[in-house]
């Protein structure tokens, strides 16, 4: 890892990468956040009310099917949050932008909550369907393993004092963990062919749930995505301010 950059002529990055500057990033997130919170709340309220009260009961599953409006979006975000952390970790390892590392740190607790929501709603949905709160179904098991990966990732961030060391080590863990998460997914599939119904959403129209369920579900997913973005932006801002405090204190302490 060579970090001997030419400091004589500081580069002024423009466009997307200029937001890698923590101060500039804070400015942007402060401007964007109110709108993001508003949009997230709006689409969640609309999507959930539409889904819960204005869709018919499923002819087989009855009203239990409506938990889909929490289950599917949270499950999607659980995986997407990890993918986002992976991308952010790679950006940190390659370009060493601090905002990127802190965004990955900020996304992890959000991801872990999404995973928990997916697991809990899965259990609540599974109970009337399969007669059990828990089944070692490949999809559920994969999410449980994903949950463990999140825990390890967060614990490693917490355990290491030096922020740059922590950022480097968690990034390496995120990379290695991603490979093993995919491996585990296939291993679990091999280990137990499951009860879980097929994908609720796919580009192949045949497999999709019916339109009446589909549109409110899309709104809910949009709501979860917006909520995730808002939470991550907000938390990244907090992490940046913490680091700023730390940096100022370190400089002060040296005199």
């Amino acid at each position: 890892m060579s970090m001997t950059e030419d400091t004589a002529t500081p580069k002024r990055p423009s466009g997307f990468w200029s937001y890698a500057n923590p101060v500039k990033f804070l400015g942007l997130s402060e401007r964007v956040l109110p709108a993001l919170w508003g949009l997230a709340a709006l689409s969640l309220i609309v999507g959930l009310i539409w889904g819960f009260f204005f869709t018919p009961d499923d002819f087989r599953q009855g009203s239990t099917v409506k938990i889909i409006y929490l289950h599917v979006p949270s499950a999607m975000m659980a995986i997407n949050a990890w993918v986002m952390m992976l991308v952010a970790s790679l950006i940190w390892l390659i370009r060493r932008h601090h905002v990127s590392a802190l965004a990955a740190k900020a996304a992890a607790p959000v991801g872990v909550v999404m995973t928990l929501i997916a697991l809990c709603t899965g259990a609540i949905w599974g109970q009337p369907m399969w007669g059990d709160w828990w089944a070692w179904d490949p999809r559920l098991t994969s999410f449980l393993i994903l949950f463990l990966f999140y825990l390890g990732y967060i614990a490693l961030w917490e355990a290491i004092e030096d922020p740059d060391t922590a950022a480097d080590l968690t990034s390496v863990l995120c990379l290695v963990g991603s490979v093993f998460a995919v491996l585990s997914r296939y291993a679990v599939n091999f280990w137990n062919q499951g009860l879980h119904q097929g994908a609720s959403l796919s580009l192949d129209k045949e497999e999709n749930v019916a339109d009446v369920f589909y549109f409110p579900l899309l709104v809910c997913i949009a709501g979860f995505v917006l909520l995730f973005l808002a939470l991550v932006l907000y938390r990244t801002g907090t992490e940046i301010r913490l680091r700023r405090t730390r940096a100022l204190q370190a400089r002060e302490a040296r005199l």
Binding site: T7, P22, H98, D164, R243, R244, R246, A247, L248, R251
Partner: peptide, 11 residues
């Protein structure tokens, strides 16, 4: 001092 240390991005 500004030499590219990691805390400088936050000052």
């Amino acid at each position: 001092t500004r030499a590219g240390a990691s805390d400088e991005a936050f000052l």
